[in-house]
């Protein structure tokens, strides 16, 4: 695979940008900045994909990530203390191990990449990649594509169910308490009854032993 000089220059720029912004994600105190540094890293990778003539995948990656990272920034503001970086913060655990793991994985992967002899069969540099991908998506790989769609739909339903306030039997905070078996029994009674049983169970077993 050989590329022209301008493409090489652009590649170096985007690659450096993608790596540097990926690093900055974990080096900033502001949640919104962290999310948008990550977005910048994705844009860098997306741009490299466009250079590789995988236009559609690269652009879709960028398109998707704008929404995803904004949600991420938003969720961070919702759930994380200190969203604006008023206080400096470094919230990490097993820091040294993590650094070691990161560096090791980089070395191993890079080494493998350099030492392995991959087949050399570059893609023909035409602008038909998008069209071929479309034919593939709705032709041979339709099953995969549809599975992905179904998986996403299932995930959405599941995610809403998990996140929503109402569980299957009522408010999530009160736990999912099953309804009573008798129609006139109070819910609270049923749950109190069951808790009692749960607590008594071990001692009953203990008595038998």
């Amino acid at each position: 695979m050989s590329t022209s000089a301008p493409v090489d220059v652009l590649f170096v720029l985007f690659a450096a940008g993608a790596i540097a912004t990926a690093y900055l994600v974990f080096r900033t105190d502001s949640m919104v900045r962290a999310a948008y540094w990550l977005l910048a890293s994705f844009v860098g990778v997306g741009a490299i994909l466009v250079l590789l003539k995988a236009e559609f995948v690269g652009l879709v990656l960028m398109l998707m990530m704008a929404g995803e990272m904004t949600i991420m920034a938003f969720v961070m503001v919702m759930f994380m203390m200190n969203p604006a970086g008023l206080n400096p913060m470094l919230m990490v655990h097993q820091h040294k191990t993590a650094i070691a793991a990161g560096v090791t994985s980089f070395l191993v992967l890079a080494g493998a990449a350099l030492l392995t002899d991959f087949p050399n069969a570059p893609a023909t540099q035409t602008s038909r990649a998008t069209e071929e991908l479309g034919t593939e998506l709705l032709g041979e790989s339709m099953l995969v594509f549809e599975t992905a769609g179904a998986a996403l739909l299932g995930t959405m339903v599941g995610a809403v169910a998990v996140a929503s306030r109402r569980g299957r039997y009522g408010d999530a905070e009160e736990g999912s308490i099953e309804p009573p078996l008798q129609p006139d029994e109070e819910w609270a009674q049923a749950s109190a009854h069951r808790t009692e049983e749960d607590e008594h169970e071990p001692s009953v077993h203990g008595g038998h032993s």
Partner: peptide, 10 residues
């Protein structure tokens, strides 16, 4: 410990 305002992180 990191120069922040109150106790702990926040």
């Amino acid at each position: 410990p990191y120069g922040q305002g109150g106790k702990g992180m926040t």
